Deep mutational scan, measured.
Amino acid sequence: MSIQHFRVALIPFFAAFCLPVFAHPETLVKVKDAEDQLGARVGYIELDLNSGKILESFRPEERFPMMSTFKVLLCGAVLSRVDAGQEQLGRRIHYSQNDLVEYSPVTEKHLTDGMTVRELCSAAITMSDNTAANLLLTTIGGPKELTAFLHNMGDHVTRLDRWEPELNEAIPNDERDTTMPAAMATTLRKLLTGELLTLASRQQLIDWMEADKVAGPLLRSALPAGWFIADKSGAGERGSRGIIAALGPDGKPSRIVVIYTTGSQATMDERNRQIAEIGASLIKHW
């Protein structure tokens, strides 16, 4: 067993022997301040990774656009098919120029040779490549099948209805392509620590998230040296922004954090800054 596999296998073990965790309302004060600064709703939840206990939450059962955070769930569904012998990570998928959609920095470079399922998941999570996500959605049967996968996990809230990039439209009061912070946090925890996926697939999923290259201005910008984070960000229309993450000190994750916002007129930089400040408060009061 590799060191990384050992780390993920012992996530519940280490967490069980940690000192009790206590909620700190100071972080919620910052979440509410972010709402004021952005002029928009902000949803927040913080779960203990081992027990699933909610440590703090704000608007945990209000719907927010998922945006690209759905790509972690998508690759979880792909990995479940791999575990069941219905898919192979090494299978190569070929596609054409007509398949390319807006923001496809990886797939646009491989029109000639195609990409493997493993490479597509890596591109979808680490670079948020939209064509990679659409190609992977095709392998599982489309958005409705991802929703069905989530329902089978016990998540009857999260739903995907459309493809990239239309799913980022974020129309107010439109339930399409949305989740709730509580539902997303619980589902992410199941994917990373539950028995739904094999140990190898859980490790692969967290490795992809740990290698995320496009979430630097968010929670990662607030992390002290030595902290662990595996995350996936999302951005959408109407001032929408979000991030889902597993993080913790001492090089291992111990909490799940989900943050979503929508309806702001603020710039992307300002949305990023507010999420980073929430992260800084979380870490300060850990």
Rank of each mutant, 00 (worst) to 15 (best):
R162H: 10
T186A: 14
A16C: 14
L247M: 15
L219R: 03
C121E: 01
Q37L: 14
H5D: 09
L223I: 12
Q204H: 11
V106T: 07
M180A: 14
L191E: 03
R202L: 05
I54C: 09
Y103M: 06
L79P: 00
L47P: 00
G52D: 08
S233N: 01
H94I: 15
L19G: 14
R118L: 12
S96G: 13
Q203T: 14
G216V: 07
I54W: 08
T262A: 08
C121W: 00
P172V: 12
A222K: 15
E270F: 12
R41V: 09
V78Q: 03
F13Y: 11
E108Y: 08
W286G: 02
F58K: 07
E62T: 11
L219V: 10
L196W: 14
S80D: 10
I171C: 14
A235K: 02
A148Y: 13
L136R: 00
E237V: 10
A40R: 03
F14L: 09
L137P: 00
F14Y: 09
A200D: 15
Q86Y: 13
R118T: 14
K109E: 14
D36K: 15
M127S: 09
A200E: 14
I3H: 12
S281R: 13
A124G: 07
H285E: 10
N98D: 11
Q97W: 11
T138Q: 15
V106D: 07
S104T: 06
P20S: 08
S254F: 08
A245S: 10
M115S: 04
I140T: 07
L196K: 15
V106F: 07
G194K: 09
G236A: 09
E175Y: 13
E270H: 10
A211L: 13
N50M: 15
V106K: 07
G239Y: 02
N168H: 05
M67C: 14
S80I: 10
K32N: 10
N152A: 14
K53D: 10
R41Q: 10
A40Y: 03
T179C: 05
K30E: 07
D99L: 09
P253Y: 03
N50D: 15
W286L: 04
V117R: 01
G114A: 05
G263F: 04
R241K: 06
K190H: 13
D177R: 01
P25E: 12
I140V: 09
M1Y: 01
L111D: 07
A230F: 02
V257D: 00
A215I: 03
Y95C: 03
M209R: 00
G141V: 04
S221T: 13
I244D: 00
N152T: 14
R255V: 06
S57A: 15
S281T: 14
Y260L: 11
L191R: 00
T186F: 15
L199G: 15
L188Q: 03
T261E: 06
S51V: 06
I244T: 07
G85L: 08
N134Q: 05
R63I: 08
H24D: 13
S2R: 09
E108F: 08
G263T: 05
E166I: 13
H94A: 11
H24C: 08
V117A: 04
E56S: 11
Q204A: 12
T186V: 14
R202P: 01
E277H: 08
V82M: 06
K53F: 10
A246C: 12
V106C: 09
T261Q: 07
E175T: 14
D155P: 01
A183S: 11
T69A: 03
L74T: 06
E237L: 13
